[in-house]
Write a protein that binds this DNA or RNA. Structure first.
Lengths: 130, 130
DNA sequence: GGTTGCCTTGACGCCGGCGACAAGGTCTAG
DNA sequence: CTAGACCTTGTCGCCGGCGTCAAGGCAACC
């Protein structure tokens, strides 16, 4: 399988696949003319990468998952390193949710305050607009 | 007030103030030697910008707040354009919270699945490690 | 041999809010 | 006179995951 076919089957671009390769995530053999040649297993690897990126992982976080797949596991999630990353990400997401809730409260307060004081202050705006 | 003093009083850097100026958010008069000269009102403007950035707004979103302050309002939040931005941001934050909750569910499921299947698959890992 | 369609490496662009450095002018104190 | 503490404009770097050329080689068909 050449890079174009893998890209299409994985739903991504050739540029992306070469990028993953430079970062040590995807591997390819080379044919006599220098073309990259992939076997079926790499399709699973690329799909794993894409799925994890979609969830919000960075490429560095994804390494252990790929290593886990290459070690012969059906899923990249089952190895200790992967689980550690999953736990860390879960904590990060929790923290992110908390932060967004705080921001949300802040925004609601500011909106409430703005609407309360809209009448008195915006009359001045209307005067200056004329 | 020169740029260094404003930067210190606003808790930011001179680079940042010049950056805001190039983007039309902060204004300065010039003294005879070309130095930027700020009046007290700009301090409030800069603090407003910093507060909104901290909440997660981008500089473009902040423009109406600054305009509102310059129009003579005590708060930059009370003008219609500002309120519109606040509402939009609130919706974005809600969407972000929903997305993070979805990610969180996904991570929890993957963690549960990983731990369930850890025993059977990691034995293979241990064998290859030796 | 010419066209088309695959492949190769290399390098710049993007987004946003600055940090950091360069090379110089200005003002003040000693 | 000089040191140093301000100020000026200009430009490159950062982060991450690519998109998008550019310039060229290889393969296959007519």
């Amino acid at each position: 399988m050449l890079i174009g076919e893998l890209a299409e089957r994985a739903g991504t671009s050739t540029r992306t696949l070469r990028y993953y390769e430079t970062h040590g995530l995807v591997r390819a053999a080379r044919s006599a003319n220098g073309y990259r040649v992939y076997d079926e297993a790499e399709l699973h690897v690329v799909r794993e990468i894409r799925a994890l990126l979609a969830v919000g992982f960075g490429l560095e976080d994804i390494r252990p998952f790929v290593a886990c797949l290459r070690a012969g596991n059906a899923s990249g999630h089952v190895c200790p390193d992967s689980v550690a990353v999953l736990r860390r990400k879960l904590a990060e997401v929790d923290a992110g949710i908390d932060r967004l809730h705080a921001v949300r409260r802040e925004l609601r307060d500011q909106l409430a305050h703005a609407i309360t004081h809209r009448e008195e202050t915006c009359s001045r705006l209307r005067r200056t607009a004329r």
